[in-house]
Design a protein around this nucleic acid. Structure first.
Lengths: 199, 199
DNA sequence: TATTTTACTGAACAATGTTGACAAAATGAT
DNA sequence: ATCATTTTGTCAACATTGTTCAGTAAAATA
């Protein structure tokens, strides 16, 4: 009785195709460019079909949001090999900003979606939370190594994350455009270093 | 020939009425709640009339965005009387976060609008930039007083602003909801203090 | 093969932003 | 005051949007 399973697989494939099409449209032209009809055209089905696989457009965007966090999480794993705690945290910050700037629309979506935690309360297994936990681990090794002065891990991690997210957000939204292009990179780097500095 | 002036005034009044109606709709139900037809109904004119006073909906939202910065700027003035530099900066941060959390939709709009600097290059007189300059002044007094270790004013100001904006954004978007409600306030406060700490 | 279940279509609906042809009102000139 | 012109406002229309639902074709089951 492998029919049931094949159907499951087919449905999964369909969901993937829809999400892939939606993502392509999104990175190309932002939220307004993602249209049920355009998705339908891309996958060569009628618009109504999409509603057999997703509740509505919001649902689709939410899945894209999750995909963003998954990608961020995947790249975080590559930091494991850096031994020095502070250097690892620093590299993590650099990567975080690079990710945000290379995928501005996606990053925007990842933090624009309010419903991400909806229902299910503080979902321990959600990708965003897992990403934060990993980041917090790096912070903990720094604290244990005495690189920062005493303080709660979570609080310190939040402070650093907020700085990174703030920088990413301000950069993406062009709020730092008053800074000359050529010095922007250095300023941002130093700004994060300012938060990261040993104390 | 005061007719010309009266007409200017009338047009200004009309623009104000439209913006007021739009703002009411916005704070009540966010972007999707602001509709040309709803604005028109509120001011008791036909939808087409709005286009005599604003280019399009984006234009209206941009003006609301500016209004947000003006309000933030106005409140910043009340900090002047705090003598101690660090305390002033600290109070400024507290106020910034309070403003963001009391006007979450408005704050969102203030930083969601990409077109804010469009054209006119780095517009020295724009409200957002003025708000930053004022903030940077406070940072400068702290630096001059030797409260922070040496560093460029602009860079330090950006680091602190990024932290504040990051915290505000994460809070508004519910990204810190995994923290128990009762400890949230303290964590956020300490997180900012972490960035602000004398070093 | 006949029947039931599933997958899909495509037309329809209400709502959106925006435009442009027309009417009304205010202003200017004779 | 009367006529012409410019400014203001209305209304219907258009193209698109997300979403639904009565039908239909295809596939699975009996």
């Amino acid at each position: 009785m492998g029919i049931k399973e094949r159907k499951k697989r087919d449905a999964g494939k369909m969901r993937s195709r829809i999400l892939k099409a939606a993502m392509q449209l999104y990175v190309k032209g932002g939220y307004e460019n993602v249209t049920m009809r355009r998705i339908a055209a891309k996958i060569e089905y009628s618009p109504g079909t999409i509603y057999l696989y997703f509740q509505n457009k919001k649902d689709i965007m939410l899945q894209l949001c999750y995909q963003g966090f998954e990608r961020l999480l995947a790249h975080q794993d590559t930091l494991e090999k850096i031994a020095d705690p502070l250097e690892r945290l620093s590299a993590g910050g650099r990567y975080y900003l690079a990710f945000a700037l290379e995928n501005p629309e996606l990053y925007e979506l990842m933090f624009a979606t309010k419903e991400i935690f909806k229902g299910s309360g503080p979902d321990e297994e959600s990708a965003p939370l897992r990403a934060f936990r990993k980041f917090a681990e790096n912070v903990k090794t720094c604290l244990d190594a005495g690189i920062f002065s005493a303080g709660e891990v979570e609080t310190t991690a939040i402070a650093l994350w907020a700085t990174l997210h703030g920088l990413a957000s301000l950069l993406i939204k062009g709020r730092l455009r008053f800074i000359p292009e050529e010095s922007l990179g250095k300023v941002v780097e130093q700004a994060y270093a300012f938060s990261l500095r040993k104390r």
